[in-house]
Design a protein around this nucleic acid. Sequence first.
RNA 1: GUGCCCGUAGCUCAGCUGGAUAGAGCGUUUGACUACGAAUCAAAAGGCCGCAGGUUCGAAUCCUGCCGGGCACGCCA
Length: 566
Amino acid sequence: MIVMNIFKDQIIRLLSDLVPLEPEHIRQDLEAPPNLDMGNYAFPCFKLAKINRAAPGKIAAQLAERVPEDPLLEKVEANGPYLNFFLNKARLAQYIVEEVRQQKDDYGKSDADQGGTVVIDFSAPNIAKPFGIGHLRSTIIGNSLYRIHKALGYKCVGINYIGDWGTQFGKLIAAYLHWGDESLLAQDPINHLYELYVKFHRQAESDPSLDDEARNWFKKLEDRDPQAVDFWLRFRDISLSEFKRVYARLGVKFDYWHGESFYNEMLDDTLEVVEELGLLEQSQGAWIVSLEEEGMPPCLLRKQDGATLYATRDLTAAIYRHNTWQFTKALYVVGVDQTLYFRQLFAVLKKMGMQWVGKCQHIPFGMIRFDGGKMSTRQGSLVFLDDVLSEAIGRAQEIIAEKNPALPNREEVARQVGVGALIFGDLSNDRIKDVDFNWDQVMDFSGETAPYIQYAHARICSILRKAPVETECNLSLLNNDPEYALVSVLSKFPETIVRAGETCKPSFIARYLIDVAKEFSRFYHQCPVLNAEPQVRGARLALIDAVRQVLANGLDLLGIGTPEEM
RNA sequence: GUGCCCGUAGCUCAGCUGGAUAGAGCGUUUGACUACGAAUCAAAAGGCCGCAGGUUCGAAUCCUGCCGGGCACGCCA
């Protein structure tokens, strides 16, 4: 039960007695005024104006007269064409603060086991390449969506669909055989593989025979050539252990590490089914599914040389996942550049009669560019995620050394703050937008950032260490402006999570947390807690405890830690 | 060339599915630490919401056309 609905439902009840509209209709029209001194809810009277053929302002004024007094409402006022409802501040404070403090970690969440299973495919780094900041977006957006859906009562399955198969391994093997160095590989595996990968692409521009060589090696790999498999296993292990280190720093976990190679044994079955359905046709030596009717280019499932493609594996993976989890939603957190590809993939599934394809959704995000250009592994213009993490954490350490040198547990706090800043910087903007990677911005911990929110949280913890929350307190004393603004913003947490889940946009949570932290900072500067008179002090302690809880719950949904001191 | 996405303050971005005077942060200028942590707060300056039409009582938001940028478009993933 969401406490805020008590107020909203009551307003709808009062209005539906006075107005010729269905309650659901009223609920839809009810909106939030642009700012608090216009009330908590506003009912626009334009539609009524049409029905009654009267000026909306006049209707609002008449309604204001006729709305009966109610203990939940302080007042109801007409403001132009709007009917504004002001909630009883004392009641609001009591209900909200009480609710947050009772539900604790669960405040804002929906009832468990309501929505079935959501499978989330995210991160999916390519094992032949280093972990660049390009993969950061999928990783943290997916991680947050996982947490948000869990909060909304879904069971979640997080899958890291590692790119551990494909032509790029042929390239890597070919490159290693040409220029590889055993001792370098042992010493600094990631960098060596990266150099090989870059060199391969540079050389292949002038020497196309390298590409043939690479394709050849991949074909051998698919045919289980022992030497090829041996290389593959080695490169895979090196990359995997490196990735796991990065995920640990980021604080990201997965339920399954089913990479592309996981589906190898099932690919023939998939192709067989496609063929039996009469969808497979040969074209220019390759095997394709035509999507002409759908107005799209064909989907390639087998190359001329017989090797499989990304789509073959993705098709198989989708079917496997549906068979295994019977998901109600399957989210693919993958860049916008693959939009057409996913439309093709889903179209093929549909042609195959997989009705559940409607539950599959591509969750696209914009590209990261660097110095104006697209970041490219091939050209070697890659920013390593690990380096970015180190820089951000280092920056946090510097600030701690300067401001709070006695801080216990400095290492972990610096990680939470530095990594938090990085994550928040990404999640706070609409995921569809391209982002320009900018060191200054990443290193700026002031303003609308995770450290700002964490700082508000730490300040609250600091006060609560000095004076724990009292068991009995009179929350109806919370009725001045800053207190009221804080209570109001706290009340919006549950609906914010719902919205973030429905749209798969964690940015709504991030923006919301800025609002909360900002209201708290205002309150903090205007309203003393420890030195307030005893009654008020008790109520304010409870209030800030609720704020602390919401900040922590919200940051957790973004995958950001909340240190008690920083 | 075709299709999809983006265009809001000097910079980075919000703007709640069409509603009230278009909002933040950074940067700039100016104030506030012997009240609970100044990674903070308060205030000022800063806008033809890319351009032009259209729909509507009402448009940054929806439609059309243009301009600018990005991405994708058969043997990569």
